[in-house]
Computed example of a mutant assay.
Amino acid sequence: MELPRYFINHTEHLPDVYIKKYESKTNSTREKISLTHHLISFIIEGKKELIHNNTSQSVPEKHYILAKSGNCLMTERCSTNEKYSSFLIFISDSFLDRLSNKYNTKIDFSKEYNYSNAFITLTFDDFIKYYLESFQEIISKKETSKEIIEFKTEELLLYLANNKKINLYQLFQVQKNRQFKNSIENNIFSELKLEEIAFLCHMSLSTFKRTFFKIYNTTPSRWIQEQKLEKSAYSLRYENKNPTEIYYEYGYKSLSSFTQSFKKKYGVTPKKYKTR
């Protein structure tokens, strides 16, 4: 089952934020779920059993889950009242990107946290209780605008980032980071300019640099130079290549500039490094 597509007409475009109040009076069997959006699932009544990225957990009512996009297994169990009820918020990468860019001076998205699992579980507090009441009051109307839904979702994410100290970008963006890294690492040794690599990543140069620093904890130019020097050292030592053969291959315009950069990192010239 692909979520949130399962709840939406297949001819419709998937929105950046999709909300759903889900209720059932029967226990579900274990379902194979493909999350194309990240998920925040509030368990109002009953419990959910989730297996995601080889981690399993039973989540009781009055708790909520923040789960990354990807494949997982889900089971829903009714309460003693024979009812399961949850409130679901599906969030796209692009929505999180806009949030990060909008509040980058107020939220430290670069701070490192160790999110080893694909999801985390939190308990309802007073804010969440009131938040759900207000949100459900809004969606009880026949028509709810996209702007209101996104505004309420933004409110929740800001609360999680500021009050629960959850690095939403790091928690949710694993798949996107992998795609971003692939775009970078496939073009390390090309002659492309940073502006051109940013374009291939569908980003402005400023957004590209911010995203790069969040992932690699250094600037693009420093990281790329380090990678080129490490690769050139490998070529000298293990591929028996000469400095004159590789300096241009690794993006240096002259042998002297390559020699200077190499010596600064390794303490010896490329020629001496090869023979020692």
Rank of each mutant, 00 (worst) to 15 (best):
Y234D: 13
L194R: 12
Y216Q: 01
S190Y: 05
I188D: 03
N177L: 03
K176H: 10
E155W: 01
D108I: 06
C201N: 03
L99K: 07
L194I: 09
F124T: 01
K111N: 09
Y113T: 14
R237C: 08
S145A: 06
S140R: 07
E196M: 11
T207M: 07
L160F: 00
I166R: 11
K111R: 11
I107R: 03
N167G: 10
L158W: 10
S183D: 12
F172Y: 08
Q170A: 05
L132K: 12
K209R: 12
K129Q: 15
A233N: 12
E147T: 07
I138R: 04
S235I: 15
S145N: 12
Y131C: 06
S140Y: 08
F208H: 04
L236I: 10
S183N: 11
L229Y: 11
I148V: 10
F119I: 02
D126R: 13
T144K: 14
F119E: 13
Y159F: 09
A233L: 09
Y115E: 12
L192S: 08
D108Y: 04
L205R: 15
K209V: 15
I107H: 04
R222Q: 15
F109E: 04
Y234I: 05
K176L: 06
T207Y: 06
C201T: 02
Y113N: 15
A233P: 14
K152I: 15
N182P: 00
T153Y: 08
D125L: 01
K164V: 01
Q136P: 03
S232E: 03
A233C: 06
E137R: 15
Y169L: 13
F208E: 03
I128D: 00
P220H: 08
L236K: 10
I120R: 00
K228R: 14
L157M: 07
S204H: 02
K164E: 13
F135G: 00
R210K: 11
L171H: 03
E154W: 02
I188H: 11
